[in-house]
Nucleic acid binder design. Structure first.
Lengths: 364, 364
DNA sequence: TTTGGCACTCGCTTATTGTGAGTGCCAGAT
DNA sequence: ATCTGGCACTCACAATAAGCGAGTGCCAAA
């Protein structure tokens, strides 16, 4: 326990009572975190004395460092190593000390360029954004598939296959194509299917898909005598389309650059990497995490254990929601080691979210 | 140099002059490889003497082992370790010594079951096969997308989007849906696009897609005066669809279980794994390799460097082509460490190829 | 042709010892 | 009231050495 010039001093000066850190301590913490992010090695009092610009001897620095440690902002991995930021340290750094660097013109242009695909499908835009995020940050990029509140029925088309099976192609919103195969209890020829499709398109085009589903269900419970064969078939088939929907398009994400994480020394343990990659494949946990970010205003950051998922204990996740029109439809972000260059990653994620939204919107 | 009972002896006895190995040497090699595959540790003369069933002393075994080493079938990783199979050793083992185990009923049923999906799209079958291969072998499964010689035009549909753009949906073969977005120099309304689609479908339905393309190109060079507006628009748009085809659906594969490879000790070097995974993502090299296997009759095996790709130096690849009807359309297989249980993997890959072919075919 | 014996090799593990970066604390300087 | 030089101390890490043990090649005898 250090009492000599411990809590007391730190709490008083600098007018930063809430944080428990006076100006000097904050500055030193900032330099320490920056330094650790740069080199990945514990930072000692000598280094800090040299590079802080404060003209203090290592001994004085050590006093401050002891305080910072006691308050939980930094730890020493072992007795005679320098100090390393804790999650709390990173958190304070990110929340209060971080000077977010404005992006260089060059980088802005690079990002724009990557998203300026010729005639993109919505999906190819997402894939591109994800790839770009991973390439530019040398970490893992992730973009959730957009999930609109309102999904507009655009067009449906049925084609006959063999064995009483029918290929159903449903187009929603602006060019999102979904297709599935239906097994029916009798066969229909092209013309009949054409009619069925027409019937449905006339009734439902432009309507919200949830409304369509509700109407379908209520139609199905109506007395069947009051419908003609065509109507009945149409409604049954449309309902079958919706039955099998959901799980695949249901919700997931596009990821890129997983292998980038293997280049970071702090993640070089094969077993940890395996678990991480497995979580990436599983999608479940990552998706839950990203889902939380959809309600946030802008960039959101989870540092280490903050995410609440053990596999991400040594990772940080920087996310931002993206919107089409004025509706937030998805989240994108970057996954990397806690020791990442936040001041660079944050504006990159921020900008990408905005540009992706714009790109999706302009093509709407 | 061992001359005492070196080449001479081995070449004579056993009537296996071509191979350079007499019966006893072959048997010992077999036991050694099996043992090494099981335990992953260099096999010494003592172990072999105990487990070969030959009632020979370690000393005698050592003589044989010295010969096997001189002929290049095995090596000692260092002076006082046991021996390990070389690529040549594995190759001889696989070609001549291997007793392919018939699959257990249980396993056969497991495989069948995994491929018995309710109303699968072609793609979901491939994905399922790949996942199943990886799960059952605890290695990485891969299935190339089927590439038919003959691709039949089934149906095309155009839907108007904003800004002179059109969504084109092309269905080929039995339920394979491709869609892309075309930017045009003027706008068309639904009705016009409907007409254009009809025109094309009437002309091309059932035709091979290569033929269609050829006809389109020759039509385009015809004097344009002799066509009406509808025809011109139809042909231009169809040609645009083909222009942008190819790279995406062009050729690639579905992979599963990459992370399984991280559990094999011999691949636990992060840098090697990174390169391997990067090659998986790149697809290029792997695809070249798989393409070679499409001409093979049945199961094909590449052991270590045999593949010709450096990233696969420590891996073996077991593949088999799969067919729809009597046309070979793709390749599937398993990628794992050289030290894999070939006698199990080979029949699994073989059976999976047959069942996948059957599944694709039955739904045709 | 096979085998027991024997000297030898060499990768591992464990213990030992430095070395150096970094620390905490104290007493004296500012 | 702070800061700093000094000093003893800690501890990860690297280098060196020693012992073990599995395995080897070769030889001479069975």
């Amino acid at each position: 326990m250090r009492m000599q010039n411990g809590d007391g001093k730190l709490n008083m000066a600098g007018g930063m009572a809430e944080t428990g850190l006076n100006e000097r301590a904050q500055h030193l913490l900032k330099v320490l975190v920056e330094r650790y992010i740069r080199d990945g090695e514990p930072v000692g009092s000598r280094t800090l004395s040299r590079d802080s610009g404060l003209d203090l001897s290592p001994a004085s620095i050590r006093n401050v460092m002891a305080d910072l440690e006691e308050l939980g902002f930094i730890v020493a991995p072992h007795t005679s190593a320098g100090r390393v930021p804790t999650v709390k340290g990173y958190r304070f750094f990110v929340d209060t000390l971080l000077a977010v660097k404005a992006l260089e013109q060059q980088e802005v242009r690079l990002i724009q360029q990557q998203l300026a695909i010729h005639d993109p499908t919505p999906h190819s835009l997402l894939a591109s954004a994800s790839r770009m995020l991973s390439a530019i940050t040398r970490m893992t990029g992730v973009v959730t598939l957009p999930r609109r509140e309102h999904i507009a029925w655009r067009h449906i088309e049925f084609l006959p296959l063999s064995d009483n099976r029918v290929l159903a192609i449903l187009v929603v919103n602006e060019g999102e194509v979904q297709n599935r195969i239906l097994s029916l209890d009798r066969s229909y020829d092209s013309a009949a299917l054409q009619q069925i499709g027409n019937y449905l398109n006339i009734h439902f085009a432009g309507k919200d898909i949830h409304v369509v589903r509700a109407e379908l269900l209520s139609e199905l419970t109506r007395t069947r005598e009051s419908m003609n064969n065509l109507m009945l078939a149409a409604i049954t088939m449309a309902e079958k389309v919706f039955e099998t929907r959901g799980q695949e398009s249901g919700h997931s994400y596009v990821m890129a650059g997983e292998t980038n994480l293997m280049e970071w020394a702090e993640l070089s343990d094969v077993e940890k990497l395996r678990r991480l990659f497995e979580a990436f494949n599983q999608q479940r946990d990552i998706l839950h995490l990203l889902d939380k970010c959809i309600v946030a205003e802008g960039v959101q950051i989870f540092i280490g254990e903050e995410s609440g998922y053990r596999v991400l204990d040594e990772c940080s996740v920087v996310t931002a929601p993206y919107s089409v029109g004025d509706e937030v439809v998805g989240v994108l972000g970057v996954i990397g080691p806690t020791r990442m260059a936040y001041e660079r990653v944050i504006p990159i994620v921020d900008l990408t979210a905005k540009l992706l939204g714009a790109a999706l919107n302009s093509r709407k």
